[in-house]
Design a protein around this nucleic acid. Structure first.
Length: 863
RNA sequence: AGGCGCGUAGCUCAGUUGGUUAGAGCGCAUCCCUCACACGGAUGAAGUCCGCGGUUCGAGUCCGCGCGCGCCUACCA
């Protein structure tokens, strides 16, 4: 056999990708039982995001585990999907085509917008917008598919899905209807966390706190019938003054006790509001007395509800101050004209601008500001994808009831094995801190439509209590485009007719169903039952509160089960300064050039070196180390195979391993197999790699091959030569398999040089069995348990002597004296012929004695 | 503010359930072109295992306290 001289990753990668595809070796076999099947719930990456070196990292981690399980004989269910619905895609399309979605515009089948056009955004209809989203999504998916393929991820590509495709829409809508039917979903009109930029409601999981500079403004409020003429209230949001509906202080607060029951008069707007005691008012904060607005924060909402306060909304959905008339119903004022004169100045302004205006007006008004403002920094809630502070805006939204299930959800989390274990804590902490039901509806376009219509009353108004739901077999539906059964499109929006719910579902409403999506759930109940709950969910830690959480919620609500038995958490790739990689910081490393430069195996090696859950600084040296390992494996394999290639395989085998040094190396192999297997069973691929790599390089290449080499050069097929050849073949075949999960391309290449036809092995290394102790059970242990260790002692001593004498390693040595205890002497004697040949020693002398530190003391005399 | 994790050689990190002299890769120094590999090999220098206290015959490993870093959760008067 002619083996290539140098290893070039590129030359073999595409070849094996094609081969694996042709032979379909990664396909799931639905005929096999659950107990012999390993089921993975893969995270569908957001395809509108950029390809990131972190993708290579965490997706490799799944593949190590999966390939190991496959070699353990498991039938692998390893689907992959793409997460494409939602805001990121919408934003990308808006930027790419410079368009704006206007839902009222009709569909234009001939719409032709070009990318990169400058100027004002072109308004286009909803369906056109969705079409563009789908188009972009397709392209993005292709880029991801290419990268995932190049990395050698062993997916069953026939299970591919996209979270916006018809199947996922069906699953997601089915889930919604089921939960609605079971009473877990409800619709309500109430204050909700609202992004004024994207103009949509969002859920608690999408909120991100950011520290922002702000300031306390100390405003004087009037007091009716009081013993004083004013109270001072500290506020960071003076622009909400017009929304003030009450003033609260702690019941025990002596400063304000006597004011409870009286009314305060808001400055500028002169609105009388009640002064009430409430234990939630913190005497330490500000001046200890707080104005309640509709709505400044979550506590305002609670107070508003508890005391049944009026609603005075001033911030609109677009973040502009709404038009308001004082003196009108609900907008009482002691001086409506003055109030309106002030409000007119902020009406229509953006919140932030309105704040400045109000402050300016206040500053000009005599006796309003009590003392200079006090700068401070505080946490402000943002939508994770937005850059404007969230507002609490009363709107009609759909919710999944979860607040009443916190205990049960915590319990579910405890049934799952989190790896590393402490990651389970993050889940529990999140569940503990839940403060609102899951807001499901989004006022967006590219998403799974909420499958609900409402009847329209004779007065032309929507009757939100009179829902029309689709039949399950009609899913997926688009209520804005499809008419419900029994109606015609002409009745849309007409009195006595219907309207479609205009909203789409939170992307997590669909992403939380990836197990059900993959199993096909109610569409193929038998398949679902055979796959669910799944074995593992690999993911990274920042989506514990979203993806893991919501998936656990859905599995619990739908089937009372956990979705998977293990959650396997990958860490993050940080930049070399240990900062998070992000597009905005410009420190993102793109993956393709790395694959080009180092090859997929080397990149995977880099990923494999990181332990589960541990964030890892990006370090190119590790790629180089990976490449070195590949080169070493290539060269060693070429050599090892060359040492026995011309011997009839029938003459080689475990029964031919008779030489003591050979049996010694086999003995070393046992703990390796045991420990690496245990590590892998525990999802600790990094530990397994470290063990295998160390054995391969140090034990096998540096010592054993050198030791046994001499015998393999014998002319005759001596017992010693056959023993060495058999050992090399056996150990090498074990190591290639143990490296296969990490280096799938190179190991497959090497495998095909030699082992594809072996009994008990598979044509592909990736379907061949992971090494077990059974394979070497028949090989007796060496007579002396110290043989390997004592031999290495001699090798190291002689090498050291040669290095210190600046000699070549092949320089001859006339005599070596080994001082050791009797059993170690015997051990060395068992390998002494190999040692002499390897180290070019003429004569070895043994002296029984105490060697000092170590097993053997070695004295070397050069020639 | 609470919770979690981390702190080991110049750098990046291992360290199996507590056990001799704490390891690897990179880097550094010296040497070796040995018929698989110079993308290699040999040898070496280099660590108060963050600090203090405790448990133990024995602690990098277990416990307590402290310091530093990171993350999670909370924090909008």
């Amino acid at each position: 056999m002619e083996l290539p001289r140098k290893y070039k990753a590129k030359d073999c990668e595409q070849r094996w990708l094609d081969h694996w595809k042709d032979t379909n070796i990664f396909a799931y076999d639905p005929t096999r039982g659950r107990d012999e099947t390993f089921v993975v719930d893969t995270p569908p990456p957001t395809v509108s995001g950029s390809l990131h070196v972190g993708h290579l990292f965490s997706y490799s981690h799944q593949d190590f585990v999966v390939r190991y399980q496959r070699m353990r004989g498991k039938n692998i269910f390893f689907p992959i999907g793409w997460d494409d619905n939602g805001l990121p895609t919408e934003r990308r399309v808006q930027n790419l085509y410079n368009v704006r979605c206007e839902p009222h515009i009709h569909y234009n089948p001939d719409l032709d917008v070009k990318r990169g056009r400058k100027g004002n955004p072109t308004p286009i209809g909803r369906l056109n917008f969705i079409e563009l989203c789908e188009e972009v999504t397709k392209e993005d998916e292709e880029a991801f598919r290419n990268l995932w393929t190049r990395l050698g991820l062993s997916y069953d590509w026939s299970q591919e899905y996209a979270t916006i495709d018809a199947h996922c829409r069906t699953m997601s809508q089915y889930s919604f209807l089921k939960l609605l039917e079971d009473g877990h979903i409800y619709q309500a009109e109430r204050p909700v966390m609202w992004d004024i930029g994207f103009q949509t409601a969002i859920a608690q999981a999408e909120i991100e706190d950011k520290e922002r500079p702000s300031a306390f403004h100390f405003l004087r409020f009037g007091v009716e019938d009081g013993d004083r003429d004013h109270i001072v209230i500290a506020t960071t949001r003076p622009e909400l003054l017009a929304s003030c509906v009450a003033v609260l202080a702690h019941p025990e607060d002596e400063r304000y006790k006597n004011l409870f029951g009286k009314r305060a008069i808001t400055p500028l707007f002169k609105v009388p509001v009640p002064i009430m005691p409430d234990p939630l008012a913190d005497p330490e904060k500000g001046t200890g007395i707080v104005m309640v607005c509709t709505f400044g924060d979550q506590t305002d909402v609670e107070w508003w509800r508890e005391y049944d306060l009026p609603l005075r909304q001033t911030i609109g959905r677009n973040g502009l101050m709404m038009p308001v008339t004082f003196g009108a119903e609900g907008w009482d004022s002691l001086d409506p004209d003055a109030a309106n004169a002030v409000y007119t100045q902020i009406a229509g302004q953006f919140v932030k601008k309105a704040q400045k205006t109000i402050i300016a007006i206040a500053e000009e008004t005599e006796g309003l500001i009590d003392r200079p403002k006090e700068p401070l920094t505080h946490a402000v809630k943002f939508f994770e994808k937005g850059d404007l502070p969230l507002e609490l805006i009363p709107t009609r939204q759909w919710y999944t009831r979860i607040m009443d299930k916190k205990e049960a959800l915590t319990e579910q989390g405890r049934k799952i094995a989190w790896r590393p274990e402490f990651m389970g804590k993050r889940y529990e902490l999140w569940v503990e801190g839940l403060n609102q039901d899951w807001c499901l509806s989004r006022q967006r376009y590219f998403g799974v439509p909420i499958p609900v219509w409402f009847r329209v009353g004779d007065d032309g108004r929507a009757l939100y209590e009179e829902r029309i739901l689709p039949a399950i077999e009609d899913l997926p539906v688009d209520p804005l485009n499809d008419a419900p059964a029994g109606f015609t499109e002409e009745q849309r929006g007409q009195p006595g007719g219907f309207i479609g719910d205009p909203d789409v579902l939170d992307t997590w409403a669909t992403s939380s169903l990836t197990p059900q999506v993959a199993t096909k759930w109610f569409k193929d109940q038998a398949r679902h039952d055979n796959l669910f709950p799944m074995d593992i969910r690999p993911q990274s830690h920042e989506i514990i509160r979203t993806w893991a959480f919501y998936t656990i919620v859905k599995a619990y609500l739908h089937s009372g089960e956990i979705p998977w038995r293990n959650v396997v958490i990958s860490g993050w790739i940080l930049d070399p300064d240990r900062k998070k990689m992000s597009k905005s910081q410009g420190n993102v490393v793109t993956p393709e050039p790395l694959l080009d430069e180092f090859g997929a195996d080397s990149v995977r090696y880099w990923a494999a070196r990181a332990r589960l859950g541990v964030d890892t600084a990006y370090d190119e040296l590790v790629f180089k180390t990976g490449k070195r390992l590949c080169t070493k494996l290539f060269n060693a394999s070429k050599f090892v195979i060359g040492r026995f290639a011309d011997i009839d395989p029938a003459q080689l085998g475990p029964d031919k391993i008779v030489a003591e040094p050979d049996r010694a190396i086999i003995a070393e192999l046992r703990p390796l197999i045991e420990r690496a297997t245990a590590a892998f069973d525990d999802f600790d691929y990094a530990q397994a790699l470290s063990l295998v790599e160390d054995f391969f390089w140090r034990t096998f290449c540096d010592n054993y091959i050198e030791l046994a080499k001499g015998r393999t050069y014998k002319e005759e097929l001596t017992e010693g030569r056959l023993s060495a050849a058999s050992t090399l073949r056996l150990v090498h075949r074990v190591l290639v398999r143990m490296l296969a999960p990490y280096l799938p391309f190179l190991t497959e290449e090497v495998w095909h040089w030699c082992y594809t036809g072996d009994a008990g092995m598979h044509e592909s290394v990736h379907r061949s069995p992971w090494p077990t102790l059974d394979e070497i059970a028949a090989i007796p242990a060496p007579r002396n348990a110290l043989t390997y260790q004592a031999s290495v002692g001699v090798i190291e001593a002689v090498r050291k002597a040669k290095a210190e004498a600046n000699l070549s390693m092949k320089a001859p040595v006339s005599r070596v004296t080994v001082t050791a205890k009797a059993d170690a002497i015997e051990a060395v004697q068992n390998a002494v012929d190999d040692l002499k040949e390897m180290l070019h020693i003429e004569q070895v002398e043994f002296v029984e004695g105490t060697p000092g530190p170590g097993l053997v003391a070695v004295e070397v005399r050069a020639q």
